[in-house]
C-alpha cells in the first residue's frame, strides 16, 4: 500500500500516514498485522517548519538560537524517552486490539455453532456431537489466547505508556516555553530540573506540577 504525504494540517504523530487509504474508516482503525518499527528521528517540532515560522514572524536571532539550544537539550533528555513511550503505547494498543478482535470473532463463532447445534438437534441429531466438539475447540482456543496474553497484559501497558508519553509531551512544551518551575531557574539548575522531571515521568512518578518543591 502506498504511503501518502500527510496533509498540511495533519497532527504531528509517529503513526504511519496513508495507512489502508481508501478503505472504510472502521477498517482503517483495525490493528496492523505487521507493526512498523519505531522512527528514531521523530521530532515533535519539525526543524524546517520551525525555521520557516521564525522567518515569517521575523523572530529575534538570539531568541531563535536559545530555542534551538533548548530543543537540542530536550532531544537528548526528554524526546528519546517520549519516542519510546509513544511507540510502546501504540504497540500495546495494537496488541490489545488484536487479542480483543480475535475474542470477538471466536465469540461470534461460538454463538453461530451453538445456534446451529440448537437448530439441527431435532432434524439432524447425528451432527450434534460435532457441533459440541467445535464449541469446545473454540472455548479451548479462547482460553489459550487469554492465558498467553495475560502474562504481559497489553491493556494496562498501553494506558500506562500513553499516560507517560503524554506527560512527557507536556513537559517538553513546559520547558521550551519556560513555564514554572523552569521560569525561575537558570543554566545548569534549569537543565538538571528538566532531566530529573523527565526521568521521574518516565519512571511513573508524577511530576505534573508547576513548582519544583512538589515534585522534588
Amino acid at each position: 500500500m502506498s504511503i501518502a504525504a500527510p496533509p498540511e494540517n495533519a497532527p504531528i504523530s509517529q503513526e504511519k500516514t496513508g495507512f489502508r487509504k481508501g478503505w472504510p474508516e472502521w477498517i482503517r482503525q483495525l490493528p496492523m498485522r505487521r507493526f512498523p518499527p519505531p522512527k528514531p528521528d521523530f521530532q515533535l517540532i519539525d526543524q524546517q517548519q520551525l525555521d520557516a515560522l521564525m522567518e515569517s514572524v521575523k523572530a529575534d536571532p538570539q531568541a531563535i538560537q536559545r530555542i534551538k539550544d533548548d530543543m537540542q537539550f530536550l532531544d537528548h533528555e526528554l524526546l528519546r524517552l517520549f519516542r519510546e513511550r509513544d511507540y510502546q503505547a501504540k504497540y500495546e494498543q495494537n496488541r490489545y486490539r488484536t487479542y480483543q478482535i480475535t475474542y470477538m470473532v471466536l465469540a461470534a463463532l461460538a454463538t453461530l455453532v451453538g445456534s446451529l447445534l440448537a437448530v439441527t438437534l431435532r432434524s439432524v441429531p447425528q451432527l450434534a456431537p460435532w457441533f459440541g466438539f467445535a464449541e469446545t475447540i473454540i472455548a479451548l482456543l479462547a482460553t489459550y489466547l487469554a492465558t498467553i496474553s495475560g502474562r504481559e497484559a497489553p491493556l494496562p501497558r498501553w494506558i500506562e505508556n500513553r499516560r507517560r508519553a503524554e506527560q512527557l509531551r507536556r513537559e517538553y512544551y513546559r520547558y521550551l516555553m519556560d513555564l514554572p518551575p523552569y521560569d525561575t531557574l537558570k543554566g545548569f539548575e534549569r537543565r538538571k530540573t528538566l532531566s530529573l522531571r523527565a526521568a521521574q515521568i518516565n519512571r511513573g512518578t508524577p511530576a505534573e506540577t508547576n513548582s519544583v518543591g512538589k515534585t522534588g
Partner: peptide, 11 residues
C-alpha cells in the same frame, strides 16, 4: 531564562 520580550514572542 525566556524573560526578554523578543524571546517570549518567538516562543
Amino acid at each position: 531564562m525566556a524573560s526578554s520580550r523578543p524571546d517570549l514572542e518567538a516562543r
